[in-house]
Amino acid sequence: MQPMSLLIVTGILFVGSHLLLSHPLRAPLADRMGERAFQIVYSVVAVATLILVVQAWRGMPPEPPLWVVDDPLWALASLIVLFASILFMGSLIGNPALPAPGAAFAAQAAPRGVFAITRHPMMWAFALWAFAHALAMPTPAQIVLSAIIAVLALVGSAGQDAKKARLMGDAWRHWAARTSFIPFARQVSGITPWGDAIPRGHALAGGLVLWLVATWAHGALGTMAAGIWRWIGG
């Protein structure tokens, strides 16, 4: 099998198995196997298919970039990753989409910060991270890998809407009615004030730290310098 074909096939296995086990197959398998056994199977399948994707990506031959990546494009990609980092850190506190006992209680709060931007800030963080990497490293292999991550994040979050509505009932439906799937959709439409979408302190501070550390790690691990380190490092 050609390297690109292998990457695509392993990507389909990774995304497909994750979505199937997260949604249509989860309830029947968990009922039959028990929740603990199901979680073990789910984790094994997720890790195994992810390893296949990583190995396929590493096995790709060198490829020329599809477009020139200059400083303005690097700056844009870096800002997208910074925004994604803020979304991610903000999603860790008070997120009704997370499988936490207090999810229904969190859904009663007024959407503020990253939750006023989108009700799936964590998933959009992954999708934006993938998009930024495709911008800054525009090889066919990287674009396919980024597409795999983005599809899993966004299709998975759409499936999460349906699952949460089933599990949480009116609590989730009320939350969904006051939030948007697409980032800033409610602000653009004039439904929600832009001020509500200002990320809170833990999201801003945590996102900045995450962004600085993650972009620094690019150079520290021997890959290309990223973020502000691309210019600071000279």
Results as ranks from 00 to 15, higher is better:
Phe131Cys: 06
Ala48Arg: 03
Met33His: 10
Arg178Thr: 06
Gln55Ile: 08
Ala220Tyr: 07
Trp175Leu: 09
Gly59Pro: 05
Phe14Gly: 07
Ala141Pro: 04
Ala107Asp: 09
Leu73Gln: 06
Gly169Lys: 04
Ile191Cys: 14
Met168Cys: 13
Gly234Met: 10
Ala214Asn: 11
Trp211Ile: 07
Trp231Cys: 01
Val53Ser: 12
Leu19Cys: 06
Ala84Gly: 01
Ala205Cys: 05
Val155Ala: 05
Leu50His: 11
Phe126Glu: 08
Glu63Gln: 05
Ala226Val: 02
Ala30Gly: 01
Leu92Tyr: 00
Phe184Thr: 00
Phe126Trp: 15
Ile228Cys: 13
Ala127His: 01
Leu92Thr: 13
Ile80Thr: 00
Val53Gln: 10
Val209Phe: 02
Met137Thr: 09
Ile143Gln: 15
Val53Lys: 06
Thr192Gly: 12
Gly90Arg: 06
Thr139Trp: 02
Leu98Arg: 13
Ala132Ile: 07
Pro138Cys: 09
Gly206Pro: 07
Phe88Lys: 12
Phe184Asp: 00
Phe38Asn: 01
Ile8Pro: 00
Trp172Leu: 11
Ser180Lys: 08
Pro111Arg: 07
Phe184Trp: 11
Ala37Tyr: 02
Ala48Leu: 13
Arg166His: 15
Phe126Leu: 15
Thr10Val: 13
Phe184Leu: 09
Ile198Ala: 10
Leu25Gln: 03
Trp172Glu: 01
Arg26Glu: 00
Thr192Leu: 13
Trp124Asn: 03
Leu145Ile: 09
Arg230His: 10
Ala109Asn: 13
Gln108Gly: 09
Leu76Tyr: 03
Trp229Phe: 01
Pro121Leu: 01
Gln2Asn: 14
His218Ala: 04
Ala97Glu: 05
Phe184Pro: 10
Leu204Tyr: 03
Ser85Pro: 13
Gly234Asn: 07
Arg26Ile: 05
Arg26Ala: 06
Pro61His: 04
His218Asp: 07
Ala214Leu: 10
Ile182Phe: 02
Val144Gly: 02
Leu221Gly: 07
Ala153Gly: 08
Pro24Cys: 06
Ile12Thr: 09
Ala153Val: 02
Leu87Tyr: 15
Ile86Gly: 02
Gln2Ala: 15
Gly169Tyr: 04
Ala205Arg: 10
Ser189Val: 09
Leu82Cys: 10
Ile93Arg: 11
Trp74Thr: 02
Gly34Cys: 05
Ala185Asn: 11
Phe88Gly: 08
Trp124Gly: 00
Val188His: 06
Ser17His: 00
Pro3His: 03
Val69Cys: 14
Asp161His: 15
Asp161Lys: 12
Ile182His: 03
Leu221Ala: 08
Gly113Ala: 15
Met60Gly: 09
Ala100Thr: 14
Met168Asn: 01
Ala110Leu: 11
Pro28Met: 00
Pro138Met: 12
Phe184Ile: 05
Gly159Ile: 00
Met4Val: 08
Val44Ala: 11
Ala162Asp: 11
Tyr42Met: 05
Pro99Trp: 11
His18Tyr: 04
Leu208Val: 10
Val68Gly: 12
Ser189Trp: 10
Ala130Val: 04
Met224Phe: 14
Phe14Ile: 03
Ala100Phe: 12
Gly233Asn: 14
Ser180Phe: 04
Arg200Asp: 02
Gly195Ser: 06
Trp216Glu: 12
Gly102Tyr: 00
Gln2His: 14
Arg32Pro: 13
Gly201Met: 14
Asp170Leu: 15
Ile80Arg: 01
Trp57Lys: 15
Trp216Tyr: 12
Ala225Met: 14
Gln160Tyr: 10
